[in-house]
């Protein structure tokens, strides 16, 4: 029982990270109809940014995290404003190819700036807690706590703030949003910035567990799988998809070690087979 509980917590915390990346990914997709295949790499850059601020420059952890989020928001904003925006209106595959190549550029750049060796970033969450025989690292708990806080903040932001509502409007109908005076271009870049900041948090929370290295960006691929499982374009779906993959992984590692690396993708294929629109569908075939 204790082992089960432990695996569950490990899975949940891992799943939270996937879920956070997938949420950034879905947020961009919902608002701008662009798929950002570089989301995982943006997370990776975010964790490196936090590393520079906290470890190299000696900022306090919370201040450093906040600054890293701000910097990443700016980064995301300008990635959209300077590069991605140029190809709006071109076929979908241009955007796919563009963002994938951006991911590779980010990875190469991170390797050149911070090196290939994994770096460790210490968070205030050290030690373990004991729950009825199950020993659980506080870093795992911090991921879950952080995710709950982030999700609440995102929800409140999208629901009640002026900018959040503008984002929803732009995501529902670009043209109509433009007509009622929403600065659509600015909102789009803002969404990119927001998604980058969320990924930055995910990256920092993940840092004590996986260490920071340029290849962390490949986690993004699992986040895409999470987004597909949840149904593209559904924020809660993305989070739940992430949790499903996250929970499946440690259990697969414990009971079915052959498939531990690919279990997430197998689940994704199963979902695509049985319910191709995802568990929480918002995409429908467009009617003419």
């Amino acid at each position: 029982m204790a082992e089960f509980f432990q695996l569950l917590i490990i899975g949940l915390s891992q799943g939270c990270v996937y879920g956070l990346i997938a949420m950034g990914f879905v947020m961009i997709y919902k608002a701008t109809e662009m798929v950002n295949f570089a989301q995982g790499d943006i997370m990776m850059i975010g964790s490196f940014m936090a590393f520079t601020l906290i470890v190299t420059w000696g900022f306090n952890f919370w201040l450093g995290l906040l600054l890293a989020m701000l910097l990443m928001a700016l980064f995301g904003f300008f990635v959209d404003a300077l590069v991605v925006r140029r190809i709006i209106g071109q076929p979908q595959f241009s955007i796919v190819i563009l963002t994938i190549s951006l991911g590779f550029i980010f990875r190469a750049a991170a390797g050149m700036i911070w090196g290939q060796a994994p770096l460790s970033l210490d968070t205030p969450f050290v030690g373990t807690s004991n729950f009825g025989g199950a020993v659980i690292g506080r870093d795992r708990l911090s991921i879950m706590g952080g995710t709950v806080i982030m999700v609440t903040l995102i929800f409140l932001f999208l629901r009640y703030s002026r900018w959040g509502i503008a984002m929803q409007a732009a995501s529902q109908n670009q043209l109509a949003a433009f007509y009622v005076g929403i600065p659509v271009k600015l909102v789009y870049s803002g969404v990119w910035g927001l998604a980058a900041a969320i990924s930055c948090v995910a990256g920092v929370l993940l840092a004590p567990i996986t260490l920071i290295d340029p290849l962390n960006g490949f986690l993004g691929i699992k986040a895409f799988a999470a987004a597909v499982i949840g149904g593209f374009g559904s924020l809660p779906g993305a989070l739940i998809g992430g949790l499903i993959i996250g929970i499946a992984e440690p259990f697969a590692a414990a009971y079915l070690p052959e498939v531990k690396n690919i279990i997430g993708y197998l689940i994704m294929f199963a979902v695509l087979m049985l319910r191709p629109e995802g568990l929480f569908a918002t995409i429908y075939q467009k009617k003419v």
Binding site: G89, Q174, K286
Partner: peptide, 8 residues
């Protein structure tokens, strides 16, 4: 304009 793939 951005072509939507979703039905709203």
């Amino acid at each position: 304009y951005l072509k939507t793939e979703r039905m709203r």
